[in-house]
């Protein structure tokens, strides 16, 4: 706006322009950007899966990931280890924040994201299911463009499989407290390197003898509940 005003003023000063008879004085207008603030509560609905710190990304139209495609390294890291620094550095993000810590089964966390008001504004949410190889729960894209201050949206999320690590459930490969194994490993050894829904964990009590997981780590959909309230 300011730049436009300056350009107009410069134009009207141009002596070669025969149309302009006298200079038009344009008062510079300082426009304060309108900030939208969203307060998000995130509840873990599983029986025995800790959920890694929730990642929240605001974007205009290109979601951080798409079903049926190959996971980015950022998403691979999030889904295999819960670490979200790389994921949050997503290049099309207008804003990106992480909840402070992981939440256990039955727990709820709150995270706030602020972003300059946009005509089109979407939010994306992601967190790892800790006692798995590469499961994450996610709302890829939620349109909050028309959400009024004070208004809220409530969604439940399902479990996805990043497709970046085979679901062996072994003690060496599951990073959560059930096994304390390795987190991120750049080797991609799953059946297909694409994001699908997660088939669930098997556990050592249900036929996978090499599994470090017990029946208490089984989960079903939905995995989490997310409530988004526009607070500013």
């Amino acid at each position: 706006m300011l730049a436009l005003a300056t350009t107009l003023a410069a134009c009207s000063d141009n002596d070669n322009d025969p149309v302009v008879e006298e200079p038009v004085v344009v008062e510079p207008i300082v426009v304060e950007p309108v900030i939208s603030e969203f307060t998000i509560t995130f509840s873990n609905l599983t029986a025995g899966q800790p959920l890694s710190p929730l990642s929240v990304i605001a974007f205009e139209d290109e979601a951080p990931w798409t079903f049926g495609t190959t996971a980015s390294v950022g998403l691979e890291m999030l889904a295999e280890s819960g670490a979200n620094e790389e994921y949050l550095s997503y290049e099309s993000a207008l804003a990106a924040v992480s909840a402070e810590g992981a939440i256990g089964p039955g727990e709820t966390t709150t995270v706030i994201i602020t972003v300059e008001e946009q005509e089109t504004l979407n939010l994306s949410f992601a967190a790892m299911l800790g006692n798995t190889n590469d499961a994450f729960t996610d709302l890829s894209s939620l349109d909050v463009s028309t959400l009024e201050v004070g208004g809220s949206l409530s969604r439940t999320t399902t479990a996805y499989d990043a497709g970046t690590e085979a679901n062996t459930e072994t003690a060496e490969t599951v990073p959560g407290p059930a096994a304390s194994g390795e987190g991120f490993n750049e080797i991609r050894d799953d059946t297909a390197d694409i994001i699908t829904m997660h088939p669930g964990i098997v556990s050592n009590q249900d036929g996978l003898s090499t599994s470090a997981l017990g029946v208490e780590h089984k989960f079903d959909n939905p995995v989490s509940k997310i409530v988004i309230t526009r607070t500013q």
Binding site: T191, G207, D220
Partner: peptide, 22 residues
């Protein structure tokens, strides 16, 4: 499914052929 592709009860793999709805 089971974790033995040559024996066991099932010919399916328990880490590949299970699913959750939807």
């Amino acid at each position: 499914g089971d974790d033995d592709l040559e024996a066991g009860n099932s010919d399916l793999s328990n880490t590949v052929h299970r699913w959750l709805n939807p």
